[in-house]
């Protein structure tokens, strides 16, 4: 079985259990359910709330360089710290944090394979106490925008068929049957998908225990939808977090050289006046 392209970015629960007191490692929990941390978390882990600490709370955007520096400084993180991210929903928002840390150039960031679910399922130790760490003066790098797709790039790619668009939402969101995931508020005016996009729900990259599927399984999954190294790939979802999970899989596990996360995603495209929209199932692979 082939190895991941960058196996160093994934750690297993056993490895992490041996690193809980390592001062060069900072463990960070990032959940969809932002209060899950309070019920019990990996000992020594801190929590970042995606709604308030991993997004600009005024305008719609990711963190600014200054805000990221403040967050990492407050978290006691230095540029050479190994950051281990984990969270619920198979690391969905942990991947969102991973993507932003890479945008701002943090060198050593890794995901806990299986996330919070696997740690709990293995009956490993948890704590309900929030630790505090000595603050640092973290300096981030300038944002690497080659990891991020903005609307004009996506529009251009659609027009010229210049990229593989991967819509990682659920099938019913992709077809337009629903405007938002079941039970969540509707935040766009139209349902459907960006013309030419293929639907590969993000969760297909994971096993039942929350771990990532093997390299061979992932390659087969995405190759079948025309995603390959021969063309740039743009991943999108509803607000850009599920697609950061797929971005991680494509870039770090499969090693595709040119993958971007379109974090504007469907809540941007589906609200645009005059934007082309396809509804129903995808047409054909490789478009």
């Amino acid at each position: 079985m082939a190895q991941y392209a960058h196996p160093e970015v994934v750690v297993d629960t056993e490895w992490l259990a041996g690193k809980l007191k390592d001062p060069s490692v900072r463990i960070v929990e990032v959940d969809v359910d932002t209060s899950a941390y309070d019920l019990g978390h990996i000992p020594g882990a801190i929590a970042w709330a995606w709604t308030t600490q991993l997004s600009d709370t005024v305008r719609r955007d990711i963190l600014s360089k200054g805000d990221l520096e403040a967050l990492l400084s407050k978290s006691g993180i230095k540029p050479d710290t190994t950051i281990i991210l984990y969270g619920d929903s198979n690391n969905w928002f942990a991947a969102w944090a991973f993507w932003q840390l890479k945008v701002y150039g943090h060198k050593d960031v890794r995901l806990l394979n299986g996330g919070r679910k696997k740690w709990l399922a293995e009956s490993r130790e948890v704590s309900d106490q929030a630790p505090s760490y000595e603050h640092t003066q973290y300096k981030a790098q300038e944002p690497d925008l080659s990891l991020r797709a903005f609307l004009p790039q996506v529009q251009d790619a659609v027009k010229k068929h210049a990229a593989s668009l991967v819509d990682v939402r659920g099938p019913q969101e992709f077809t337009g049957e629903i405007l938002a995931p079941p039970g969540l508020p509707e935040t766009c005016q139209r349902g459907g998908h960006i013309p030419g996009a293929r639907n590969v729900p993000w969760s297909k990259a994971c096993n039942d225990d929350g771990t990532f599927k093997s390299f061979d399984e992932l390659k087969a999954l995405y190759s079948a939808e025309g995603v390959s190294a021969s063309k740039p790939t743009i991943a999108y979802c509803r607000i850009g977090e599920r697609s950061s999970h797929t971005w991680f899989v494509l870039k770090y596990l499969l090693g595709l050289p040119n993958v971007t996360n379109y974090d504007g995603s469907w809540t941007e495209w589906g609200n645009l006046v005059g934007a082309p929209v396809e509804r129903g199932a995808a047409k054909s692979a490789g478009v």
């Binding site: 619920d88 929903s89 659920g170 995931p181 969540l184 993000w202």
Partner: peptide
């Protein structure tokens, strides 16, 4: 309780 697809927490 989560909504399976996509896996977002509905209630805890």
């Amino acid at each position: 309780a989560d909504n399976v697809s996509p896996g977002a927490c509905l209630a805890r």
